[in-house]
Design a protein around this nucleic acid. Structure first.
Lengths: 140, 140
DNA sequence: TATTGTTATACTCTATAACTATA
DNA sequence: TATAGTTATAGAGTATAACAATA
């Protein structure tokens, strides 16, 4: 059906543009805090608790070897620490230091604030629909 | 108001997660085509016509000096070309070669297909609401 | 003087392949 | 043998500062 096809690509296009807009916004909020967007993402993922290298690499969608050097750099700045895992001597767990935790929360709050500003003009009903729709997309 | 605050951060959180999901999807569709996500973005931006370095750097949100090396690499692969701008001898215009145009369209179509699959289960009314809401966010 | 684009330099991000240590 | 994480290496993305050519 022609109408449906047009509407699908409109939505896809809007989602792609939104992705780029949010990437920029994410970079703009990370930079003044002295972080790359990737570093900010890593720190924010650790807010809910320490993670092993393999699990963290899966969440961030990067290779473990790439993660090693990222963690090296953050550890040098005392933002994260490698902690031994008593249950498995091969493994370690990456956790936020107090300074890292503070910075992670600053990042998180700054991004949420910026996005809240962007979406503030939407009617409550639209925000609810949007949230529900996005969540359903994410669970696929 | 507590309820509004909670709803705002839910939406912000859903948008951030969607951004990351779409970034992964974008990387996954670019890679088999032999492109990084940034290269794919650059090629797709040029689909609508040639652009100067300054304008292109603004659209991609990167410094002109960073763009120079990206264009160098794509030019070496004959995907883009630097064309002289007769109106201004300092400037050049970056345009897609036939191979670049082909690849750009492949990228674009692949991403739209993947996203259409993700959003295919949403009711038509929700898709419309979503599209309208995202467009209104983007114009801010 | 201002603008367009490039060069030089230094980091960061990323993947692949090979490796060590432990399970 | 399989898994957790690292090392070595190479290439790509990015910013800052300084520059050449043209407007």
């Amino acid at each position: 059906m022609v109408t449906t096809t047009a509407r699908d690509s409109d939505l896809a296009s809007a989602l792609v543009q939104t992705m780029h807009r949010l990437q920029d916004l994410h970079a703009e909020t990370s930079r003044p805090l002295g972080l790359t967007p990737q570093q900010a993402h890593l720190l924010c993922v650790l807010i809910t608790g320490p993670l092993g290298m393999t699990e963290l690499s899966r969440i961030l969608s990067i290779e473990r070897s790439s993660l090693t050097s990222m963690v090296d750099r953050l550890e040098r700045r005392d933002l994260v620490a490698r902690v031994a895992n008593p249950a498995d001597r091969r493994a370690c767990r990456i956790e936020l230091t107090p300074a890292g935790k503070d910075l992670a929360h600053q990042c998180h709050d700054a991004v949420v604030d910026r996005i809240a500003t962007l979406t503030g003009d939407l009617p409550a009903a639209t925000r609810t629909t949007l949230t529900t729709a996005l969540k359903s997309i994410l669970t696929q």
